[in-house]
């Protein structure tokens, strides 16, 4: 719920940066490693937004994959089943490459 509140704060801040334009839709990018369950976040956002000046704001939530980069062959690969080994060359020397995002990816603003 506090993350959903932070999302609305972020939407308000960005709307203010764009002359207070009315926001009709917001895009969110939530990584598999962010610790946020997309469905819970969607539920919290819908509950929170209903009673505010932002209603009826819609959300599009996109999930970002958990990825690692191979230090040997350079491939960036998606981690499945928590396997850190490179899926291209099989090497086990890999580093974190993504999946912890929790960001506002776009806003759709009403034309003035």
């Amino acid at each position: 719920m506090s993350i959903a509140e932070s999302v609305l704060d972020a939407v308000r801040a960005e709307s203010a940066l764009h002359g207070g334009a009315r926001v009709t839709r917001a895009g969110l990018r939530i990584g598999e490693l962010s610790g946020v369950a997309v469905e819970s976040l969607r539920f919290c956002l819908e509950v929170l937004v209903a009673d505010t000046d932002l209603a009826p704001l819609g959300f599009e939530i996109e999930s970002a994959a958990w990825t690692r980069r191979c230090r040997a062959c350079g491939a960036v690969f998606r981690v499945t089943d928590a396997r850190p080994e490179c899926t291209a060359c099989g090497g086990d020397d890999t580093e974190a490459a993504g999946g912890d995002q929790m960001e506002l990816s776009y806003l759709e603003l009403e034309e003035p």
Binding site: I3, L28, E103, L104, E108, L109
Partner: peptide
């Protein structure tokens, strides 16, 4: 109008 962003939610 769509405005692309990369704003962290917990900034």
């Amino acid at each position: 109008m769509r405005v692309p962003l990369e704003r962290k939610v917990l900034s």
